[in-house]
Design a protein around this nucleic acid. Structure first.
Length: 563
RNA sequence: UGGGGCGUCGUCAAGUGGUAAGACACAAGAUUUUGGUUCUUGCAUUCGGAGGUUCGAAUCCUCCCGCCCCAGCCA
C-alpha cells in the first residue's frame, strides 16, 4: 500500500490500466508485483519500480505482491532476501501476506514443462552451449534447427525426467521450447526453458539440479499469482512475445500484460547490479550499506528519508525515454523533506578557538534556542555560552575577499542565537602559519537583538561553547564518481571513481544537547547541512554522517572568484 | 546488419489536430540572527531533420537522421 495518496503522478502505464478497467479486462481487477532477484541489494532504481508497482496497486484498489525471483541459485542468498524485505518495508510499502518465491513454484513449473513436452512444444536438446549459439544464427541470418528438435514426445519426457533425476552432467543438455529458429526475434529461436545446474539453492537445497530460465518462470509465476499488469524495464521488450507464448500455451484465462518502462539512471553513480557488486567486492566502499552507495540500505544509513526517496520517484516520472536523472534532484528532495522536519542544532566541523576577552572567566549563560526558526511547535532547547568557544575555521579570514560577511580584522559578526562579537587579535603557529586561536570582545547589549546604536551586523556564524562541546566524528560524503555517466567508461568505470568521496573529520564538536542523542536521528547543523547519527558508533564518540549539504550560494560565489 | 523501442528547455517530463504544463538546474530581486528556508520574476515563437495533408500539426502521412535493446544454459 502506498503510504500517501497521489504519491505517483499519472503516467502512460496508468492510462493503459484505466483503459483496461474501463474495458473490464481482467474483470476490472488490478494486481501488480515487485519481482527482484535476491542476488544483491536493491537500489534507487528498484525504488522507482517499487513506487510504481505499489503505487498502481494503491491507486486502483488492487494489491502488489513481493516476489523473489530466485530461479538461478548462483549468487542468491537469504541475506539478500532479508535485505530486500527490510528495504521495501522501510520505503513504506506493505505486501500483507503476499510474499512469494519463484522457487515455491518449482514443482508447478516442472509440470508446465512436462505439459509443453506433451504438446510437442518442447524438446530436450543435447547441443552444448557453443553449438546452441552457433545454431541460433545471427541478427541477419536465421538459425538452424537443432538435430534433436524432432525427438518424440516419449523420448523427451524420458530425457527430461532423467535430467531432473541427475543422470546427465551439467550443461550436457537443456530443455528448449520448439518455436521458430527462423524468427526475426532472436529470443524466439527455440529458447532454453530448463538447464542443469548442480548448485544448491538457498531455499530448495539440493532438491533440484535443474532450474527454469527467467523467460519461462517469470511469466508463469505472474500468471499463477493472477497478476494483471506485469511491469518491467525496457530491455525486456524483446522478451514479450515469449512471455505471451508461454502463458498462452499453458494457462487458461486472462494473460498478464507485460508493460515496459525506462529504468532509472542517476548521474555521478552507477545502478547496475554488476557494477555495484564490483564496488563492494573490490573494497571501494565499505559494503552494500556504505552511505555513498545508491542502495536503499546505503541511503538509509546516510540519513535519507523514505519520504524523500518516494518524492524523488514521483518527481522523475515514468516514461520510455532513456534517461540520466540529475542526482541534484534527489538531493533537492532530501533537502526539502529535511528542511521541514529536522531540528536545528549547532556544530563546528573544523574548530577554531575563540576567546571572548571581556566575558567573565567562569560565567556560563544559557540561551533558549529555537529548534526550527519557522516552526515554534518544534520547541526550544538550552545552549550554554561561555568565554571560550569554537567557531568554524572558515568563518575567520585574515584577508577576507569581497562580499565575505564573516569574521576578520576589524570586523563584527553575530554569533547565532547569541551576542555580537568583534575581532581583536589572534595567535598563530609561527612554523605552520595555522591560526591557533583568536580573541574577540562581545557586546553585552546584543543578546536579545540588534545593537541599540543601530549599527548593522551582516554576518551570522555558528559556534559551540568549548567546555560544553561534545567531541564527534563527522563523515562528509561526496558523489561516488567524478563523471556524470560512469557507465560511458565501460569496464573502465572504476577509473572515474571520486577518490575524495569520503572525508572523515575526527576533531569536530557538536553542541551539548546532542550528547545522548540516538542513532538514526537527523539534524540540521545550521549553516552546514543535514546530518544523521550513524548506527555504527564505535569508540563511544558520536559519528555523524552528512546526509546532504545545505544549498550554498556563498560557496558558489567563492568558487567563481577563485580563478 | 534483421527485429524491437525511443527522440519535446541544460536534466527529467506533460502534451493524444486548436496554437508548448510542471519539477530540478540556472539568473535576478525581496524577506531573513542559518550566504538556509520562504516569496516574486525570468528561462523552448518551437518539439531530431526535410517534405506533405489541414483554416490550423509536437500531435496525421512520407522519407531521412540519431540513440538504446536483443545473438547468457543471467534476470
Amino acid at each position: 500500500m502506498a503510504p500517501s495518496n497521489n504519491l505517483f503522478p499519472s503516467n502512460f502505464i496508468w492510462e493503459i490500466i484505466e483503459e483496461d478497467i474501463k474495458a473490464n479486462k481482467h474483470g476490472g481487477r488490478v494486481a501488480t508485483r515487485f519481482p527482484p532477484e535476491p542476488n544483491g541489494y536493491i537500489h534507487i532504481g528498484h525504488a522507482k519500480s517499487i513506487c510504481l508497482n505499489f503505487g498502481i496497486a494503491a491507486q486502483f484498489g488492487g494489491a502488489c505482491n513481493l516476489r523473489l525471483d530466485d530461479t538461478d541459485p548462483a549468487g542468491e542468498s537469504l541475506e539478500y532476501v532479508q535485505s530486500i524485505i527490510d528495504d521495501v518495508r522501510w520505503l513504506g510499502f506493505d505486501w500483507g501476506e503476499r510474499l512469494f518465491y519463484a522457487s515455491d513454484y518449482f514443482d508447478k513449473l516442472y509440470e508446465f514443462a512436462v505439459q509443453l513436452i506433451m504438446a510437442g512444444k518442447a524438446y530436450v536438446c543435447d547441443l552444448n552451449a557453443d553449438e546452441i549459439r552457433q545454431y541460433r544464427g545471427t541478427f541477419t541470418e536465421p538459425g538452424k534447427d537443432s538435430p534433436y528438435r524432432n525427438r518424440s514426445v516419449e523420448e523427451n519426457l524420458d530425457l527430461f525426467e532423467r535430467m531432473r533425476a541427475g543422470e546427465f552432467a551439467d550443461g550436457s543438455c537443456v530443455l528448449r521450447a520448439k518455436i521458430d529458429m527462423a524468427s526475426t526475434n532472436v529470443i524466439m529461436r527455440d529458447p532454453i526453458i530448463y538447464r542443469i545446474k548442480r548448485e544448491p539453492h538457498y531455499r530448495t537445497g539440493k532438491k533440484w539440479i535443474i532450474y527454469p530460465m527467467y523467460d519461462f518462470a517469470h511469466c508463469l509465476s505472474d500468471a499463477l499469482e493472477k497478476i494483471t499488469h506485469s511491469i518491467c524495464t525496457l530491455e525486456f521488450e524483446n522478451n514479450r512475445p515469449l512471455y505471451d507464448w508461454f502463458v498462452d500455451q499453458l494457462i487458461m484465462g486472462d494473460r498478464p500484460q507485460q508493460i515496459e518502462f525506462a529504468r532509472l539512471n542517476l548521474s555521478y553513480t552507477v545502478l547496475s547490479k554488476r557494477r555495484l557488486i564490483e564496488l563492494v567486492e573490490n573494497g571501494h566502499v565499505a559494503g552494500w550499506d556504505d552511505p555513498r552507495m545508491p542502495t536503499v540500505a546505503g541511503m538509509r544509513r546516510r540519513g535519507y528519508t523514505p519520504e524523500a526517496i518516494r518524492n524523488f520517484c514521483a518527481a522523475i516520472g515514468v516514461a520510455k525515454n532513456e534517461n540520466l536523472v540529475d542526482i541534484g534532484l534527489l538531493e533537492h528532495c532530501v533537502r526539502s523533506d529535511l528542511s521541514e522536519t529536522a531540528p536545528r542544532v549547532m556544530s563546528v566541523l573544523n574548530p577554531l578557538k575563540v576567546i571572548i576577552d571581556n566575558y567573565p572567566q567562569e560565567k556560563v549563560e544559557e540561551f533558549e534556542c529555537a529548534n526550527h526558526p519557522q516552526k515554534p511547535e518544534m520547541g526550544t532547547r538550552k545552549v550554554p555560552f561561555s568565554r571560550a568557544l569554537y567557531i568554524e575555521y572558515d568563518d575567520f579570514m585574515e584577508e577576507p575577499p569581497k562580499k565575505y560577511k564573516r569574521l576578520g580584522p576589524g570586523r563584527e559578526v553575530r554569533l547565532r542565537n547569541a551576542y555580537v562579537i568583534k575581532y581583536q587579535s589572534l595567535r598563530k603557529d609561527e612554523r605552520t602559519g595555522k591560526i591557533l586561536e583568536i580573541h574577540c570582545t562581545y557586546d553585552p547589549q546584543t543578546r536579545e537583538g540588534a545593537p541599540p546604536d543601530g549599527r548593522k551586523i551582516e554576518g551570522v556564524i555558528h559556534w559551540v561553547s568549548a567546555r560544553h562541546a561534545v567531541p564527534a566524528e563527522v563523515r562528509l560524503y561526496d558523489r561516488l564518481f567524478n563523471v556524470p555517466d560512469p557507465s560511458m567508461a565501460g569496464d573502465d568505470f572504476m577509473e572515474t571513481l571520486n577518490p575524495n568521496s569520503l572525508e572523515t573529520l575526527s576533531s569536530s564538536f557538536v553542541e551539548a544537547s546532542l550528547k545522548d542523542a540516538a542513532p538514526g536521528n537527523r539534524y540540521q547543523f545550521e549553516r552546514l547541512g543535514y546530518f544523521c547519527i550513524d548506527a555504527k558508533d564505535s569508540s563511544g564518540k558520536h559519528v555523524f554522517n552528512r546526509i546532504v549539504s545545505l544549498r550554498d550560494t556563498w560557496g558558489k560565489i567563492a568558487a567563481q572568484n577563485k580563478p
